[in-house]
């Protein structure tokens, strides 16, 4: 089997696909052609830029460049998870950063060091795409979990104060809502684990197959990746919620009054 390379000329041909999208938008008057134009351009520019950057990292093959790339990934992910919150407060960004970093690095260490046994560990070919998948999923999980936690605390002030007034600690009073926030964040990952391979072929596995890997080998990678995404989501969300809930309480196990100045 031969791997077919896509040249820039072939990319121009791929604009046929954009033409189809454009036609649908115009025909049904979706008024999306402006966004479509910008989106088409951004896809090309952003991915090309990342491609060149990765090429540089791959060519130089230095551990500190890989660490720098991971650091940037984590900062962007934390900022994104923070920006998606309905209620933001000082310190939440750092909680996001800490949770995504710890959850991500622990999972990454297990995959790179124990499962794949990559030597040296910083080989960009492995660590960069795997870290990207881990951090991306951890970010989505953290954003979902904290949004849910905020909403639950707002909706259940009565029950939380009832538990406190019966002598519960802040942690015990908020525990049912921590659990539902964690469940909400983990459910999409678990649902994916149920249907993967039946409903959809994951992008990474498809990519490996196109690149010439045998389906059996690609599948084994995908299995590891799926387990890894679940672990990263679980670790990150539990850390994020355990760190974040404290903000809503005083050290004397009192639920703080509702925020007055938070606008989205």
């Amino acid at each position: 089997m031969q791997y077919i390379n896509i040249g820039y000329g072939d990319l121009v041909l791929a604009l046929i696909l954009v033409g189809i999208t454009l036609a649908v938008s115009l025909w049904q008057r979706l008024d999306l052609h402006g966004d479509l134009f910008v989106g088409t351009l951004r896809t090309f520019v952003q991915l090309t830029a990342v491609g060149y950057l990765l090429q540089v990292i791959f060519n130089l093959n230095r551990w500190y460049l890989v660490v720098l790339a991971l650091g940037i990934m984590l900062l962007v992910a934390a900022a994104n998870a923070y920006r998606r919150q309905q209620e933001r407060w000082p310190g939440l960004f750092f909680i996001m950063l800490l949770a995504i970093a710890l959850g991500g690095i622990i999972t990454l260490a297990i995959v790179i060091g124990i499962v794949l046994k990559v030597k040296p560990w910083y080989q960009p070919q492995y660590i960069i795409p795997i870290a990207g998948m881990i951090v991306g999923n951890a970010m989505i999980g953290a954003a979902l979990a904290i949004n849910r936690l905020t909403g639950e605390i707002k909706a259940h002030r009565g029950e939380i104060e009832a538990a406190l007034s019966l002598g519960a600690t802040a942690y015990l009073a908020v525990l049912p809502y921590l659990r539902s926030a964690l469940r909400a964040a983990m459910l999409p990952t678990i649902s994916t684990m149920m249907t993967v391979g039946i409903v959809q072929l994951p992008g990474m596995m498809s990519g490996q197959i196109i690149a010439g890997a045998s389906p059996a080998a690609a599948v084994r990678y995908q299995v590891v990746v799926t387990y890894m995404v679940a672990a990263a989501t679980a670790l990150t969300t539990i850390m994020a919620t355990l760190l974040a809930y404290r903000y809503y309480f005083t050290p004397n196990h009192q639920l703080k009054p509702p925020a007055q100045n938070n606008k989205t």
Partner: peptide
């Protein structure tokens, strides 16, 4: 102790706040 205080001083609200 705040937990002892809250055990000694019980509270009931306008609306019942029972747990699941």
């Amino acid at each position: 102790n705040i937990f002892t205080l809250r055990q000694r001083v019980g509270m009931v609200w306008q609306l019942p706040t029972l747990f699941p």
